[in-house]
């Protein structure tokens, strides 16, 4: 949605590391639709800080291990 943010992420990689968690399952666990998870993985959408923490906590890593500032 709009300009791409200068933020990369490892959501897809972390999903695959955690037993191939599906996009739908990840979305359900953190209160997002599957399409929003897809948008995050494709860098089309930057999640809120709360969601970023929820994702990081789900994978048991820090927020900066999931989201990387690219500029």
């Amino acid at each position: 949605m709009g300009k791409r943010p200068p933020i990369d992420n490892r959501v897809r990689e972390l999903r695959e590391q955690h037993g191939g968690l599906t996009q739908a399952a990840l979305g359900e666990a953190i209160g997002l639709t599957r399409q929003t998870v897809i948008a995050i993985e494709q860098n089309r959408y930057s999640p809120s800080l709360e969601t970023a923490f929820r994702i990081a906590r789900l994978f048991d890593v820090g927020v900066e291990d999931v989201f990387i500032w690219t500029e």
Partner: peptide
């Protein structure tokens, strides 16, 4: 399913 944060935006 409830509206998520991206949908709200």
């Amino acid at each position: 399913a409830p509206v998520d944060e991206r949908e709200q935006q």
